[in-house]
């Protein structure tokens, strides 16, 4: 079976400073990789390289994907001046049959017509996560998905991601705390 993402000897330099060197990994369908590392060890950069946003890289990266990547970074791509409902319709997930259930689980089902700017940081993060929940891509990239989430929602996220692994999706996520997801560990700080 072919890996969804295969990275060989990835290195990245920024302003002549080496971030990481010779990172190699293979990500199969139905598997997850937990990227760990100290602050500034290049977790976000590694995810951006896999997305294809960042180019300056030595080494090779091969992707065998049928659908587009689902990526959630630090920026949540939501419009502050629109309501929750309008934001969801911008993300094209307003008519998704599962939306209702996720909204109830996150406690957001009654705030659909509220302006996003009056929601808290954690609530906004939950809305952004809805895009991850309702996508149909086969590779999910998450950059610190748990920042600002309460324990209940964290557990819900982990349950959901484990469920997605069952459905043969591949997940790459970076997090400085350990999450209850069946994953291999990739520590960027160790490899330098």
């Amino acid at each position: 079976m072919q890996p969804k993402v295969k990275a060989t000897n990835l290195s990245y330099k920024i302003n002549e400073k080496k971030l990481f060197q010779n990172i190699s990994f293979e990500l199969m369908a139905g598997k997850a990789i937990h990227i760990q590392g100290d602050n500034g060890s290049g977790k976000t950069t590694l995810l951006k390289i896999i997305c294809g946003l960042t180019n300056q890289v030595k080494g090779e990266i091969e992707k065998k994907l049928d659908k587009q990547i689902c990526f959630l970074g630090h920026k949540n791509a939501l419009k502050q001046y629109l309501t929750v409902e309008e934001n969801l319709s911008l993300l094209n997930i307003i008519n998704h049959p599962d939306l209702k259930q996720h909204l109830i689980e996150f406690g957001l089902d009654k705030s659909l017509d509220i302006n996003l700017s009056s929601l808290s940081f954690g609530q906004q993060k939950k809305i952004a996560l809805l895009r991850v929940f309702l996508n149909d891509s086969d590779l999910i990239l998450l950059d610190e998905p748990c920042v600002g989430l309460d324990t209940q929602s964290q557990n819900y996220l982990c349950r959901f991601l484990n469920d997605e692994l069952e459905h043969r999706k591949s997940i790459l996520f970076s997090s400085h705390i350990s999450l209850d997801i069946n994953s291999e560990k990739l520590n960027l700080s160790d490899q330098v």
Binding site: C51, Q68, I69, F71, K75, A77, L78, K79
Partner: peptide, 13 residues
């Protein structure tokens, strides 16, 4: 650019 929508556009199909 600031809210990350461009990022999403750039990686979309």
């Amino acid at each position: 650019f600031n809210d990350g929508s461009l990022e999403q556009f750039a990686i979309s199909d």
